[in-house]
């Protein structure tokens, strides 16, 4: 009996010792030198592995950061300036702060604004639909509403609004990683600077058709009339392909273009309501550094707001408008 125990101990102990020796030499032999700073940098990164920086994952980005002499070309959109600052401090470099960005949808062709003309009945995938035909409305540039962007978003920052049939970006959750920009086959997403107090003005349309067919296909299309272009005093608006584009760097958020747009294609986001409470403007702005994002309300409201301007016939629209206004009032007072 004692023999058995003894032999067992000897064999197992022997195997253990030999393995340890082998492992030690193997570890020495195959030792790979790795810059310890890579780990440190990786630590500072958000570990989302979203690819928003242009590298496949956070570790690759960290390697790139360690290798480079100049951090200005590298940016982690998810972590933003704080993260980049941390990375820079690890590496003993400095980095300039970048304007935070957010993804915006450049289409407002909700089911109310855009008449459907056919029905897509294949695999529910935007790219498949876009490869097949122009889309289920007469606008061949607009959102197909099949939600590939929502699937692509790795931060749950998007959802499909059933009512409008359009995706909605939840601003607070959006990290501007650019996955939706990549995913959309119609190129309807753009990363824009978040802007002062998250206020943004942009043309929410990608329709490059001429005015008449564009307007016929969608009530809120940019028809390329150039009114905003003429109105803008800061040269922030350019016209190309029957469509206006607002440069977010040049725009001073004066909102002159918004009021002249005949179709309501220009959106203003996170501005306080104009006529209802002009006095609130400053108060809200100071007490609300990060605007509470309610894009759903905003978008719908903008759509509804735009329609009566263009087509005063519609009776329902103003009613809905009032409701939304009330909602908004409640909210802003709460915020105060």
């Amino acid at each position: 009996m004692n023999d058995v125990i003894l032999y067992t101990i000897i064999t197992l102990g022997g195997i253990g010792a030999i393995s340890a020796v082998i492992l030690y030499f193997v570890a020495q032999k195959f030792k790979v030198f790795e810059d310890p700073r890579i780990d440190e940098v990786e630590e500072a990164l958000p570990s989302a592995n979203c690819g928003g920086c242009g590298y496949p994952g956070c570790r690759n980005f960290a390697e790139a950061c360690v290798k480079t002499d100049d951090l200005s070309t590298l940016f982690c959109p998810v972590g933003g300036n704080d993260t980049m600052g941390a990375v820079a401090s690890v590496l003993g470099m400095t980095v300039d702060a970048k304007e935070p960005q957010v993804a915006v949808l450049l289409c407002n062709g909700s089911s109310a604004n855009r008449k459907r003309t056919s029905e897509f009945d294949s695999a529910a995938n935007c790219t498949i639909a876009a490869n097949t035909y122009g889309g289920d409305t007469d606008c061949t540039h607009g959102c197909l509403g099949l939600g590939e962007c929502v699937d692509a978003c790795g931060f749950d920052a998007m959802y499909m609004d059933k009512e409008t049939g359009l995706p909605v970006v939840i601003e607070d959750a959006c990290t501007a990683c650019g996955a939706c920009v990549e995913a959309c086959p119609k190129d309807l997403f753009q990363l824009r600077n978040k802007g002062k107090k998250s206020k943004r003005i942009y043309v929410s349309c990608m329709n490059t058709d001429k005015g008449a067919p564009a307007k016929k296909a969608c009530d809120v299309a940019c028809i390329g009339c150039s009114k905003c272009f003429k109105e803008c005093k800061y040269d922030a608006i350019t016209m190309a392909n029957n469509k206006a584009y607002i440069d977010y760097n040049a725009c001073v958020l004066c909102r002159a273009c918004v009021s002249v747009c005949p179709t309501g294609a220009i959106h203003e986001i996170n501005f306080p309501l104009r006529k209802a409470k002009p006095a609130k403007k400053e108060g809200e702005a100071t007490t609300k550094p990060v605007t509470k994002a309610e894009p759903k309300v905003n978008l719908v409201e903008k759509a509804k707001e735009a329609t009566p301007k263009a087509e005063p016939k519609k009776e329902e629209a103003p009613k809905a408008d009032e409701k939304k206004e009330n909602n908004n009032e409640d909210k802003s007072s709460n915020n105060e």
Partner: peptide, 10 residues
């Protein structure tokens, strides 16, 4: 002009 053809695009 740009007109819809069988591809569903103008």
């Amino acid at each position: 002009d740009e007109v819809f053809d069988s591809s569903g695009y103008r």
